[in-house]
Design a protein around this nucleic acid. Structure first.
Length: 921
RNA sequence: GGGCGCAUAGCUCAGUUGGUUAGAGCGCUUGCUUGACAUGCAAGAGGUCAGAGGUUCAACUCCUCUUGUGCCCACCA
């Protein structure tokens, strides 16, 4: 087989992935004799295309899955996608807009068909991209949050929570996105500072006639959103603010609208801010909403769903967009000289996390989950470290959020998603007369009053099955709730709903092929899952809620460990995002350098939990390493063939000291890599194996045995290669598979059909003679020193004669190793002498000289001086310690012993160097 | 306003129970077309571990403060 000089990942990767799929190596199942290891993938959006964040996130999971698989676990990576309500709807709406259509033109059913069409044709894009990355997901289990069966779980959960009184409907002020025209949860409305103005507006005051003369004829309120004044129904002052005592009996008049405003007192008002008087707009501001409830104020809604002003905002402004209305209103206020001043002001405004539109706080009828009761257990399991965070600091972040958790608004006014399993009986509703099912209508109806938070449940049917008649009146005129659920209301069930929980109660839409008992067993085997790998952005959205759902419905944590990795940034430290255009496309990197190169570079750079800065050149680390692995293997096979070697299992009897040395280094690498992987410190494991393979195995061992390519050596080489490949496999699955197969073809070793199912390497039992080991290490050091000296003397690549005086029982060491020592040091001959006329290097075992006439003494002496100074500095530091009585008294014995040894060795070394130097004077 | 991080070589970062006169990758300097690999090999320069205190026999590592910097949460209009 001809192997080109450079590694070409393209065909290798495709071929390997096909093989794994064909041999069903991704599949995991219940096995009594194996430990389970499971991860559920954070389901990517069906609209998603693979970005660097996915690549990082997925590689980490894949590393753990493959590692645990090799360790003998039933290693399950559960894949799937998320229907991503708003995001997907937006995409399909945009497509529709190209034909000049709106979703309303199609109607709900037709539009839903379009959504499914889109999902079916595009939804697997991300899946195939994950496959290119090498993801070892059990693809036969792939789930989608809109599967019929998955929807069963959602209904079950909704109904159960409703029956427990943990889900309620009510009129509240919520985050409204006027572009998506839906309510959002607090988490979906992140605050961002925007530059704005704080306007000081004069409100006239009408006083009883006989009032004292001190009072002003107007008051001043400050606001960043002047247009909301059209919905003002009060002004508020702090009860302890005596400046405005006079207002208590007065009427404040809302300009333009000329509405009388009540003056209320509330502790929420900060006397220090602005003028100390607050305009109160109960229907358009969360604090004002609370005040409105407390003081029984009128709620006047001045906006439509698209944030245009409505008739309540007076005919003058009706129909205007909120920002245009703001300007128009300001113009009039200026004209009437009612603006006292304006100041530049940073406003922390909520933004829609899907389209970045500024959120409008809006009162509407929505569905909520009571979170406090659900949070209790989820707090405890984290406090008690039953669920552990890596890095641990996220525990605090999680707990802080959980301690102060707010109710979760779960209804969305979009069409793509799970419709709430809520049905309204029209007849019953008509009788109570206070309910309608159209939110937009309901909101307009709110002009007058929102009386109570909780509306009566008359006429509301919450049911797992579609009811045919109203249980209370028997009427059959039922309509289902129009709203759909927040997408996260499906995601939070992911760790168990993916196993087809709830195993069919009154509802059961499992596919025929799915066996209930198997699934039940699988859930109990694989749940709780072992780790959840995610970015910090969805800690609250998803992680926290999964823990709550797990505790509530499984009675058990959903995962033991939560791995929070960093954010992917560009080389300047700016977060990669499509809108900024600073992304690096992982698929382009795969095309250019290979998936292994991508994965390796990511794992090499990603220290646990810290952000990772990327530029295209960072992927050269991985590419170069792939090339190194490939070439070293290519060389081994070439040599094996050239020498007609039949390589089989390692034979410990025929090992020499150097073989033992490399195997010992290998042992240590295995130990450390395993330890690091077990503790999720993947980058440490990656670095360790990289360093061993390149700088120990290739740079030293392989170079040493190059010209002595005998069978015992070949066995050590192949053994070490295989062990390293195995350790690298979780990180770089493709190239390791390729070479593992090639090992099979080029040797007589019996091995597994794929490295994926090969067992994790174990340490070799080596009987190591300490003295021989020391001599071997001295030999390596001597070689480094000789190269060093040659460079100092300007003899870099010149072949020189080495004269050596053996000062102890090590003659055979030089004789046996002569050939490679000469090659690696670039020596002409090695001559063993009784006496040297000059010594360039000396250690406990030998001293040596190069047979050359004149040397540049000054550079050599300078180099010696440098070493001597180094030793001196070190010695003074160590002796300071040893002279310190308290050190001797307090430090543990072996620490003191170590220092003594250091001192002894270094002083010996120093005097040797000193002698050498003196000889050159 | 509250909370959480970060500050180590020119750049990007490791350094996990305190005991190395501090490591890697890239970049830089010097020398190598050595038949596995120039996507390589050899040698090297470069750091008072942000600053100031403290704890300790011992601090890059623990504590406090300062400075700079980043992120998250929050109803000061």
């Amino acid at each position: 087989m001809e192997m080109p000089a450079q590694y070409n990942p393209k065909e290798v990767e495709e071929k390997a992935y096909r093989k794994w799929a064909k041999e069903k190596l991704f599949a995991a199942s219940v096995a009594e004799n194996s430990d389970p290891f499971s991860i559920v993938i954070p389901p990517p959006n069906v609209t998603g295309i693979l970005h660097m964040g996915h690549a990082l996130n997925s590689t980490i999971q894949d590393v753990m899955i493959r590692f645990k698989g090799m360790k003998g676990c039933q290693s399950l990576w559960m894949p799937g996608t998320d229907h991503a309500g708003i995001a997907t709807q937006n995409v399909v709406e945009r497509n529709l807009a190209k034909d000049g259509l709106k979703k309303e033109d199609l109607g709900r059913d037709k539009f839903n068909e379009k959504l499914w069409e889109w999902t079916n044709s595009h939804g697997s894009t991300i899946i195939s991209q994950l496959k290119r990355l090498g993801a070892a997901c059990d693809w036969d289990r792939t789930r989608f949050t809109m599967d019929d069966a998955y929807s069963d779980a959602i209904k079950e959960v909704f109904v159960t929570l409703y029956e427990k009184g943990l889900i309620y409907k009510g009129n509240y002020i919520i985050n409204w996105c006027p572009r998506c025209k839906t309510a959002l949860s607090d988490e979906e409305s992140p605050h961002r500072d925007i530059d704005g103005w704080l306007y000081y507006i004069k409100y006239p005051v009408s006083r009883p006639e006989a009032d004292n003369q001190k009072a002003e004829s107007y008051i001043v309120v400050a606001t960043t959103r002047p247009e909301t004044m059209l919905g003002d129904t009060a002004v508020a002052i702090n009860p302890n603010d005596s400046r405005y005592d006079y207002l208590k009996g007065s009427d404040v008049i809302l300009p333009i609208v000329n509405r009388k405003l009540r003056v209320i007192e509330d502790e929420a008002v900060d006397p220090e801010f602005g003028t100390g008087i607050v305009k109160v707009t109960p229907a358009h501001d969360p604090i004002d909403f609370a005040m409105g409830k407390k003081h029984n104020l009128e709620f006047i809604n001045i906006m439509n769903a698209d944030a245009t002003l409505n008739d309540n905002a007076t005919a003058m402004f009706a129909g205007m967009d909120r920002f245009r209305g703001r300007q128009a209103l300001l113009d009039i206020l200026y004209e009437k000289k009612l603006i006292e001043k304006k100041e530049p002001y940073k406003i922390a405004a909520g933004h829609c996390y899907r389209c970045n539109t500024i959120i409008e706080p809006w009162v509407s009828a929505q569905w909520f989950v009571k979170m406090k009761p659900l949070a209790q257990k989820a707090i405890k399991v984290v406090e008690d470290d039953e669920v552990k965070f890596y890095p641990p600091r996220w525990k605090k972040v999680y707990l802080n959020w959980m301690y102060d958790i707010h109710d979760w608004c779960i209804s969305r006014q979009i069409w793509w998603g799970h419709r709430l399993p809520v049905y309204y009986c029209k007849q019953c509703l008509n009788q109570t007369g206070n309910q309608t099912i159209d939110h937009r209508q309901q909101i307009v109806d709110q002009n007058s009053k929102t009386k109570n938070n909780k509306e009566s449940n008359v006429g509301i049917i919450v049911s797992r099955d579609t009811p045919d008649k109203c249980p209370s009146c028997g009427g059959s005129d039922l309509v289902q709730e129009e709203d759909v659920l927040d997408t996260w209301f499906s995601s939070w069930l992911w760790p168990f709903a993916t196993f087809y929980w709830p195993f069919g109660k009154t509802i059961d839409h499992r596919p025929q092929t799915i066996d209930l008992e198997t699934k039940r067993e699988e859930l109990s085997y694989f749940y709780p899952t072992n780790i959840l790998v995610t970015a910090s952005e969805i800690l609250f959205f998803w992680v926290a809620r999964m823990i709550m759902a797990g505790m509530e419905f499984m009675g058990e944590i959903p995962f033991r460990d939560v791995l929070i990795h960093g954010t992917v940034r560009d080389e300047y430290g700016v977060k990669m995002s499509k809108s900024l255009g600073n992304t690096i496309d992982p698929l382009e990197i795969i095309d250019k350098f290979g998936a292994d190169a991508l994965r390796f570079s990511l794992m090499f750079l990603a220290a646990s939990g810290s952000d990772i800065y990327l530029s295209e050149e960072k992927f050269l680390i991985g590419r170069n390493f792939c090339n190194k692995i490939y070439n070293s293997a290519r060389f081994l096979f070439l040599k094996i063939k050239e020498n007609n070697l039949v390589v089989d299992n390692l034979n410990l009897d025929s090992l020499n000291e150097i073989d033992r040395w490399v195997l010992k280094e290998l042992n240590q690498t295995i130990e450390e890599a395993s330890k690091y992987l077990e503790s999720y410190r993947i980058n440490e494991a990656t670095k360790r194996v990289y360093d061993f393979f390149w700088h120990t195995f290739c740079d030293w061992y392989l170079e040493i045995v190059k010209d002595d390519f005998t069978l015992p050596k070949a066995k050590v080489l192949i053994h070490t290669l295989i062990s390293t490949l195995k350790m690298l496999h979780p990180i770089m699955p493709f190239i390791t598979e390729e070479i593992f197969e090639a090992v099979g073809k080029n040797t007589k070793l019996t091995q597994e059909s794929s490295i994926m199912v090969a067992s994790w390497p174990r340490k070799t039992e080596l009987n190591i003679d300490a003295r021989k080991e020391e001599i071997t290490k001295s030999l390596f050091n001597t070689i480094k020193e000789m190269r060093n000296i040659k460079t100092d003397l300007g003899l870099g690549t010149k072949k020189v004669k080495l004269k050596i005086k053996i000062t102890s029982d090590t003659k055979d060491v030089w004789a046996k190793n002569e050939s490679w020592i000469k090659r690696l040091t670039i020596l002409d001959t090695i001559e063993i002498c009784e006496d040297l006329n000059r010594v360039l290097y000396r250690n406990d075992f030998w001293e040596l000289n190069f047979d050359i006439d004149d040397i540049d003494k000054s550079t050599f002496v300078a180099s010696l001086d440098k070493k001597i100074n180094h030793a001196k500095g070190f010695l003074s530091k160590v002796s300071k310690k040893l002279e310190n009585k308290r050190f001797i008294e307090n430090a543990p014995g072996d620490t003191v012993e170590k220092e003594r040894l250091k001192f002894k060795q270094t002083s010996a070394q120093k005097s040797r160097l000193q002698e050498l130097r003196d000889a050159f004077k």
